[in-house]
Design a protein around this nucleic acid. Structure first.
Length: 421
RNA sequence: GGAGAUGUGGCAGAGUGGUUUAAUGCACCGGUUUCGAAAACCGGCAUGCCGCAAGGCAUCGGAGGUUCAAAUCCUCCCAUCUCCGCCA
């Protein structure tokens, strides 16, 4: 959510921002609704003021006949006030609905474009493997090594189901434990949040009201989060933090549930697109300055790059174009890993910042040194997602004999072994 | 799942229909005093919105309702505590 005053004072910027994001939003219409909101608010408040004044007089007045007379008078006024309040309520509902739809303004550096096809590559790292044999895809490799069972996964879960078995499971634990150490060293506090959450945190982070169809919902009207960003952002909702607490850096670990509605034809096999997976996520709350947000955005994205580099998997980083940004995002980088069999890069990480878009919705604030209350800024970036990482890991490190070479840094987390056979 | 109790500012805590613009204390901030500090004294001290300002409106866990008037009465929801049941 944006500040209505900011919108009023910068309506061209907000309108241009929506256009760049390819989101259909009419700022003029919002401002018209806001005009009527302010007008009606003034009328209602004046009536209430008069109403309160006379009510207090009645309370103070001990003379019975005058009291009865005033109470009679108030009845008529009450009717008028009720009507006006009803009008205001309707306007407010319209206003709030629109306010939740105002897209945050993308940064100047975000490239134009409608879809992810127009994201711009800004970095390439690593050497793509040259195989002396015909490489296999991750499904074939992992099935042969009994690291995963897709057929039975489908039997038990249905479409997009999978079991991780044996060394596949061990490899995940190794990656999680390595990531805990790696990101822990960078000052992130590990945290396991509730992933079955009330709707407030989804509204606050911007996954609702848009995006309802991508979420699983329970019979108690709770939702399963698709990322620990949701509950972690909810963690400090409604709080006024001490500036000395900032920046707050959390490393969330959680299962993630995604319905993948509308993507039925895509990635129908393997571990690329699944309904449930596990993810370690970097979440940062920092002071309300654009420069600080940018600094942390670069930092958390770089953390994710360094993690991938330490594993030795070739990747590139892209800056997402306007049309590929979410409602609240100001700017986003995706890190994509090389998948040899497909001969293309696939997304593993996504780093975004929001300014105060999320924290305004969630009411996460802090007092600065002047005693002024500000909304914090928020950012998040994948640390590592499993089992998707396994796709690139097993395909890039597959050997002629069908085994997989384990990256140096992971070995101590998997019993010192250097390969999976 | 059942029964009961409770929910008031950063904290403690008064307030059960109308001089409550939410008492009082603690904490915190500023001042006086002091070489400096403590103590004492004086002042300030919730949040949001409208307004250039004066000022006004709203908020006592949340949402509705009754009333001329609600922290106070009613309904539903949420949370906490105590007990019972169930359970990894």
């Amino acid at each position: 959510m944006l500040d209505i005053k900011f919108i009023r004072e910068n309506k061209e910027i907000v309108q241009e921002g929506a256009k760049k994001k390819h989101i259909d939003f009419d700022v003029e219409r919002l401002l018209q609704v806001d005009d009527s909101r302010l007008k009606k608010l003034k009328e209602v408040e004046e009536l209430r003021s008069e109403h309160n004044r006379i009510s207090n007089d009645i309370g103070r007045n001990q003379e019975p006949t005058l009291k009865v007379q005033l109470i009679e008078e108030m009845r008529g006024m009450k009717e008028e006030l009720k009507e006006e309040e009803e009008d205001l309520k309707l306007i407010m509902e319209d206003w709030q609905r629109m306010m939740l739809q105002v897209p945050n303004v993308p940064d100047m550096s975000v490239p134009e474009g409608a879809t992810d096809a127009e994201n711009k590559e800004i970095k390439v790292w690593g050497e793509k493997p040259n195989f002396s044999f015909s490489p296999k895809d991750h499904i074939e490799i992992m099935t042969a090594l009994k690291m995963a069972d897709f057929e039975r996964g489908t039997k038990v879960h249905g479409f997009r189901g999978y079991f991780l078995t044996g060394e596949g499971t061990r490899l995940c634990f190794a990656i999680w434990n390595y990531a805990m150490d790696f990101f822990g060293d960078k000052g992130f506090m590990p945290i396991i949040p509730p992933i079955l959450d009330r709707k407030e945190s989804f509204l606050g982070t911007g996954f609702l009201p848009q995006g309802e169809e991508d979420l699983y919902r329970t019979q108690d009207m709770e939702y399963l989060a698709g990322t620990s960003e949701v509950p972690i952002m909810g963690l400090h909702a409604g709080e006024i933090l001490d500036q000395k607490m900032l920046p707050i850096k959390y490393l969330g670990f959680s299962p993630c549930f995604r319905r993948e509605a509308g993507s039925h034809g895509k990635d129908i096999k393997g571990l690329i697109r699944v309904h449930e997976f596990y993810k370690l996520e970097q979440v940062v709350l920092c002071e309300a300055s654009h420069e600080t947000s940018v600094k942390f955005h670069e930092e958390i994205n770089r953390n994710a790059e360094e993690f991938i580099e330490s594993l030795g998997i070739p990747y590139h980083t892209v800056i997402n174009c306007g049309g590929d940004l979410g409602l609240g995002q100001v700017k986003k980088y995706d890190i994509e890993l090389w998948v040899p069999k497909e001969e293309k890069y696939r997304e593993i990480s996504s780093a975004s910042y929001f300014h105060d878009f999320q924290t305004r919705r969630l009411q996460i604030r802090y007092k600065d040194e002047n005693g002024k209350t500000n909304y914090t800024h928020s950012l998040n970036c994948t640390a590592i997602a499993t089992p998707r990482i396994l796709v690139s890991l097993v395909e890039n490190f597959q050997q002629a004999d069908g085994s997989i070479k384990i990256p140096e840094v992971l070995r101590k987390y998997i019993g010192g072994r250097d390969s999976i056979k």
